[in-house]
Design a protein around this nucleic acid. Structure first.
Length: 803
RNA sequence: GCCCGAGUGGCGGAAUAGGUAGACGCACAGGACUUAAAAUCCUGCGGGUGUAAUAACUCGUGCCGGUUCAAGUCCGGCCUCGGGCACCA
């Protein structure tokens, strides 16, 4: 049999014997849930990058099963989204059909690679049986006041007359025609995610995410603690500002408010230079999000003539500006400007010729502001700050806050960068949002028993000219009756974002065929949480945050048993082309896993991708190194001929050491060193003159099985070594047997390595000293010198100091 | 700008409770087998001085300092590259 036939044979056996199907509620075993991000089934097929992460988690799943866990290791498809829609538009086929084809290809490829997924739990986010529950859960958000409609800007291409996702508007231009993208106001569904900011932050303590993943979440949430202070306007009225540097309050020389905020609308009647101000507001609205946040642009803005604000601490009257660096949806949409101590305010003041007042000593504001990261932690004192002059920064922060709070004009508050989740997409290929608009009743949720609300079969998927979803054109579908009053009404035509289906799919795997609930409480209580979740770094911020938010909400309304359902999150590195660049068709450096499987076999590809380097770092493809892995497997096949009648391990220490090394390495994603340990084992076996025992050989196969499952099973069967490897218990090592009888260690004299010595377990400082001082070379170095110190670190080193 | 991560042979990478730097693999060179090539097997493989060959010495983990008997690993200060966030008050 050739490699290909061997691999097919075992894949068939695994499928027929259903060895990888997880049983719900098996109380004889400990449940263990391993998840890898389900792919978006594009037309390109599986990428070698997929193979890397799937092999890694597959190896983990296989080992855990052998260690006696009830392993849930599912796979499915995240198939809603723009690429499938684009493909459909281009080729005039229903995205449903394209997705079906692609899934077939992906699944076939995965099966050829021997991944031990439990295919009985497979589903796609586009299955009505699945998205029924995504819609149902949206209704729960709505019913608990967590979903609302708001007017939000969207990326709009004026030429294509279409709404663009942030990805399609990358760089501020339309990906298709290159036209500059503008912001257009649209009424959209929102989920109140910002209200979960603190919970999402706190919840991280209940997870075991990698540190950098946690940091990604923390940065995205972006908490900052400060003071919200009321500011009176000359002639009546007031507004509030948010600051993290209240200690600089005496340095205020102007205020800036957001052109897109509510405040300017209130102040408008009192503005004397209305025309100028209105023009500025209009210009801001036109700017794309990118242009507006471009750091290098000028500090644009316009003064509000006829309106002055009063600094609450000293009564000083200062001007108010409109500036687009202030964002309408963060904080209060207004800031106090202290140009002496904030670089942004400094630049603004320079651009508009405004006064600066230093209130913290020790800086030099000729060229730039003296900012908090410079003055904090140093011994800086307040100046020009009335009764607070002379206090340290920290003291002043506290006392000024206290005074303002006591006067009732300020509050300590937290602000978060994370906003509510814009949940509408003006697209066809997504879950329809199950809401109906009635002239009399407003927005009315669909009756839950009418779910799923199916996507209609239509021929056109192009977005409409006015930015509506293509669904808006399908009048049969849009027109319905109000579930509440029965009057004619219209359906929501926006669909859900791609992130929706992936926010809870890991729950569905626990009970994938349930048609009464999204998953039974029993199943969720049994599996509890995802023990190990692997995915790309690009998803560690947003996808993970959305999924955690979704779960926390379901938990709060009593629908899931656990608040954080993902325990460990790890992220893998990318596989780059051999030229060290990201693989892409245009660069011609794409490696197709199918070709590699055809030429070298799945096991070789699997071993290679695990051996390629540190799993969490990027790695470049090398066909030469691949050949080395092929050689490794060939040598294992060949050494089977050296099996003889001997029993027991030829080298007990080596056997136990390798079990330990491989077990620990596979558990901590150090696949490359696990394979290196097995290569060392093989190298040793090849040196055994008298051949190897069945136990020796079997152990090598057992330890390699999670990474190269086909060939190891085949050899195990060929030499009749015992039961199928996927059904046995993982080998365990004896801690007592991993210590070498003797060890050669180095001898340092005055810090330099000069000689070595063999020590045994029984040796102590005195016996070693005796031995060492008797060695010719050591004697030579010590001649005529006096030993001032003798250090023996058992099994590590001998260090002698002389003078 | 801020926050992470990383700099080790020709290459991918090992080694961090500080303890013989370069495991394992690739590439390369020499040899064996072969009519020949491929495949396979054996040997060597950081730089330098040195030797007939050993030996021996010396320099070496991005750079400069420090702590220590001992630093790739710890501390201080830089440089470079990669990633994320980015006018967040």
């Amino acid at each position: 049999m050739n490699t290909f036939e061997i691999e097919k044979k075992w894949q068939k056996i695994w499928e027929e014997e259903k060895v990888f199907e997880a049983k719900n509620n098996d109380t004889t075993k400990t449940p263990y849930y391993i998840l890898v991000e389900f792919p978006y089934p594009s037309g390109a097929g599986l990428h070698v990058g997929h193979v890397r992460s799937y092999t890694a988690v597959d190896a983990m799943a296989r080992m855990k099963r052998m260690q006696g866990f009830n392993v849930l290791f599912p796979m499915g498809w995240d198939a809603f989204g723009a690429p499938a829609e684009q493909y459909a538009i281009k080729n005039h086929i229903h995205p449903k059909e394209a997705v079906k084809e692609n899934i077939k290809t992906y699944k076939h490829q995965m099966q050829n690679l021997g991944f031990s997924f439990d295919w009985s739990r497979e589903f796609s986010t586009t299955d009505p049986e699945y998205y029924k529950w995504t819609q149902w859960q949206f209704l729960q958000f709505y019913k608990h006041g967590m979903a609302y409609k708001a007017t939000m800007p969207v990326n709009w291409c004026p030429k294509c007359k279409t709404v663009l996702s942030n990805e399609d508007a990358a760089g501020g231009v339309c990906e298709r025609c290159g036209t500059e993208v503008v912001q257009k106001e649209k009424s959209q569904w929102m989920l109140k995610m910002a209200s979960y900011a603190e919970d999402l932050l706190k919840g991280l303590d209940d997870t075991h995410f990698a540190e950098k993943v946690k940091l990604g979440q923390i940065n995205w949430i972006g908490k900052s603690t400060g003071v919200e202070m009321d500011v009176q306007i000359v002639g009546g009225g007031k507004f509030s500002i948010f600051t993290t540097c209240i200690e600089t309050v005496y340095g205020i020389t102007f205020f800036v408010i957001a052109p897109d905020g509510k405040l300017i609308k209130e102040l408008m009647p009192r503005v004397e230079n209305k025309e100028e101000v209105e023009k500025y507001i209009e210009e801001t609205a036109k700017k794309s999000a990118l242009a507006r946040t471009d750091l290098n642009k000028d500090k644009s803005g316009v003064i509000l003539q006829g309106i002055k604000a009063i600094n609450p601490v000293n009564g000083k009257e200062v001007p108010i500006f409109l500036g687009d660096f202030v964002l309408g949806d963060y904080g209060t949409g207004a800031v106090m400007a202290v140009p002496a101590h904030d670089q942004r305010d400094y630049e603004y003041a320079k651009a508009h010729n405004l006064e600066m007042i230093e209130v913290i000593s020790g800086g030099d504001i000729k060229d730039h502001a003296f900012e908090k990261q410079e003055y904090l932690g140093k011994d800086c004192k307040l100046i020009n700050s009335e009764e607070f002059t002379g206090l340290s920064v920290l003291e002043a922060k506290e006392k000024i806050t206290q005074k303002l709070v006591d006067k009732g004009i300020a509050r300590k508050v937290n602000n978060y960068k994370m906003r509510d989740w814009i949940f509408s997409r003006q697209r066809f290929w997504g879950e329809p949002i199950p809401m109906i608009y009635c002239e009399h009743c407003g927005w009315v949720p669909m009756d839950e028993k009418d779910l799923p609300l199916l996507l209609p079969d239509v021929a056109e998927y192009e977005p409409t000219d006015n930015g509506e979803s293509p669904l808006a054109k399908i009048t049969d579908w849009v027109n319905t009756t109000c579930p509440k009053c029965g009057a004619p009404a219209k359906r929501e035509t926006d669909t859900m974002p791609n992130w929706a289906g992936s926010s809870w799919y890991f729950i569905r795997y626990m009970d994938p065929h349930n048609d009464k609930e999204f998953a039974s409480m029993d199943a969720m209580k049994y599996w509890k949480k995802v023990n190990w979740y692997d995915g790309g770094m690009e998803h560690t911020a947003r996808h993970l945050l959305y999924a955690r938010f979704w779960v926390q909400f379901l938990y709060n309304i009593g629908l899931v048993p656990t608040k954080e359902m993902i325990d460990v999150r790890v992220s893998h590195g990318m596989i780059l082309g051999s030229n060290n660049e990201k693989m892409s068709k245009s660069k011609g450096n794409v490696i197709n896993p199918d070709d590699i499987v055809k030429e070298y076999g799945a096991d070789t590809l699997r071993v290679y991708e695990m051996f390629i380097g540190d799993y969490q770092s990027d790695a470049s493809w090398s066909t030469d190194s691949l050949k080395g892995c092929k050689r490794f497997l060939d040598r294992i096949i060949k050494i089977g001929d050296k099996i003889n009648q001997k029993t027991g391990y030829t080298n007990k220490v080596l056997a136990n050491k390798t079990i330990k090394k491989v077990t620990e390495d596979l558990s901590s994603m150090k696949y490359n060193t696990a394979i290196a340990a097995l290569m060392i084992m093989l190298n040793e076996y090849e040196k055994y003159g008298e051949g190897i025992s069945k136990e020796d050989y079997r152990l090598l196969l057992e330890l390699l099985n999670p990474i190269a499952p086909h060939i190891t099973e085949e050899l195990n069967e060929k030499y009749a070594l015992g039961e199928q490897l996927c059904k046995i218990s993982w080998p365990v090592y004896d801690e007592k047997l991993i210590i070498d009888e003797t060890k050669v260690i180095g001898i340092q004299i005055n810090g330099k390595l000069r000689d070595e010595v063999e020590v045994t377990k029984e040796d102590n400082e005195n016996s070693v000293k005796e031995k060492v001082l008797d060695q010719e070379k050591v004697k030579k170095y010590l001649e005529g010198k006096e030993i001032t110190k003798f250090i023996y670190v058992p099994n590590k080193i001998v260090s002698i100091l002389v003078k």
